[in-house]
Simulated scan of single mutants.
Amino acid sequence: MDTGAESQCSELVARERSGHTAVVTDDNLLYVWGGYVSVAESEVFLSNTQIWVYDIQQGVWEVFYMTGEVPPPMSGICGCFLDGQLYMFGGCDMNGQTNQMYCVNLTDGNYTWRKVRAKRGSVPSPRDKVSCWTYEGRIIYFGGYGHKALSDIDNSNRNFIVDEAAWVEDVFWGWNNEVHIFDPAQTSWTRPHTCGNTPAPRAAHASATSGCKGYIFGGRVMETRKNDIHCMDLNTMTWSEIIPVTPSPVGRSWHTLTAVSENTLFLFGGLSSNCTPMSDGWLFDLQTKKWTEIQHPHGNKPRLWHTACLGRDSDVIVFGGSCDYILLVDTGHCNDALVFQMQPYPLYRICEDFIAKNVRNNELLRNQLHFLPPKLLSAVQRRMNFYRPSKKKSAQ
């Protein structure tokens, strides 16, 4: 299977970064916000007033400036796209982990932030490297690393594992396996009762939603990086662990998991159990419970703390992240967009890509472009930008 391409046509590209958030909208635009880079020996948060938009069809970047109740610069945020809005929860700012939520409409062109203030329910404790699923208009959050007061830690059910290296007086940091639900329509938080085999606390894991099921894979707790896969029935709030019938990928953190079809999840990259940045790609069949490692053209591009979003024709768009073990060497932040083809393209897409890729060097094609139907001609002209020579210029 042809599994990808790398866009390199845009003259201006978003700055390299890790720990950012990214979503793809219905019009096949990738929105990127936040994250951090390394400058000398310091970690520097990127601008909180800029949102970068990548037209996946053309391979062209634009930057827009944001107003309103703008979030502080952050990394490790959990972002998702729901009903035209980008919702962001948690993350780490200059003061450490936060439990604030912000949203912005990505469809009206105004890019005006709004801080979300819950009307009902208890907001989860501050945390970052948390994941989420979206289902029936709600956002369901799981896990993460953050801090709690000693009085709020319930050791009876082991839903919070204390990081013994991080505490101040009666405040302790650690990993959790809590589930919290945010309902945007009601502006409310709830802590549902869950059943079944609950996963161990963790952070820097990856999640994906398929139908009425939410899935998580891997993640870190203490010095362990896991390779287990769990399923949450989002109707009944029931956990179950999936035991694969084939060998699983190695344990990892800071990877991504993307639902590419009703029955298939795509796992990419991360930091392995022996702290090696990974570039391997795996498909998991939810029906047969089989893992299959796939060959792809980005095998020389390890990534961790990147983002992965589902685009047109089930393409997976991976942006940013680091190619280093960022806890030791933190210089390898990236800003390329890697495109992974997950299924055969429809004939329309094949024709569009073939013409756009070859028209500049084929006089016959150039002379016959005007014969194309208007819709296809417009698509080809946009796609031609994707294949034009690159003069990359990163934003500073």
Results as ranks from 00 to 15, higher is better:
T3D: 08
A22Q: 04
V23L: 11
Y31C: 03
G34V: 04
G35H: 09
E41Q: 14
S42Y: 09
N48Y: 01
Q50T: 04
Q57L: 11
W61H: 00
E62K: 15
Y65G: 08
G68H: 04
V70Y: 02
P71I: 04
G76I: 00
G79C: 11
Q100M: 08
M101L: 02
V104N: 02
L106V: 04
L106R: 07
T107V: 06
R114T: 10
R120T: 12
G121V: 02
S125P: 05
G137E: 03
K148Y: 12
D152F: 04
I153K: 01
D154F: 12
S156Y: 14
N157C: 12
F160N: 05
I161A: 13
I161E: 10
A166P: 05
V168P: 05
D170I: 12
V171D: 08
F172I: 01
D183E: 10
P184R: 03
Q186H: 06
Q186V: 08
Q186K: 15
W189H: 00
T190V: 11
R191K: 15
T194F: 08
P199I: 07
R202N: 03
A206N: 00
A208G: 03
Y215W: 00
I216M: 07
R220L: 15
K226S: 14
H230W: 13
C231M: 04
P249A: 06
E262I: 14
N263L: 13
F266H: 11
L271N: 09
S273L: 15
S279L: 04
D285Y: 06
P302L: 08
T307C: 09
S314P: 02
V318I: 00
G321N: 07
D330L: 04
T331R: 15
V339F: 00
F340K: 03
P344A: 02
R349I: 07
C351G: 03
K357S: 03
R360V: 05
N362Y: 02
E363I: 11
N367F: 12
L372C: 10
L376F: 12
L376G: 06
A379M: 03
F386N: 02
P389C: 13
